[in-house]
């Protein structure tokens, strides 16, 4: 009776170990698929960041800003007497 129980426990233990091995193998494969999807997503987002950076640089190009200021907002360059220079080395700045 005792020997049968020991055999059963041994088989059960082996089955658990086998299941654990199979589970981690399947989990590894599942994570592999997920990791690959995420790497694709990272590459896509990286490309999007590059595009947005180029767009930002184009939109803030000084030539464009000057054109928008003059043509859209009706601004003009200040006359010399209208400019007050604030030195960078002024205390508190």
């Amino acid at each position: 009776m005792k020997a049968t129980r020991n055999h059963l426990l041994l088989i059960l233990g082996a089955a658990v170990l086998l299941l654990a091995y199979v589970w981690q193998h399947i989990e590894g494969i599942r994570l592999g698929y997920r990791l690959e999807r995420l790497q694709g997503e990272v590459a896509r987002l990286h490309n999007a960041v590059v595009h947005q950076r180029v767009r930002l640089s184009s939109l803030t190009a000084l030539e464009r800003v000057g054109m928008v200021a003059k043509e859209t907002l009706g601004m003009r360059s200040p006359r010399p007497e209208e400019i007050i220079t604030i030195p960078h080395d002024l205390p508190g700045l």
Binding site: N47, V50, R53, V54, S57, S58, A61, L62
Partner: peptide, 14 residues
Amino acid sequence: MSVEFPEPKRVYPE
């Protein structure tokens, strides 16, 4: 800067 469009393209924003 270079971007993929989808071929690599050199862009000069300024």
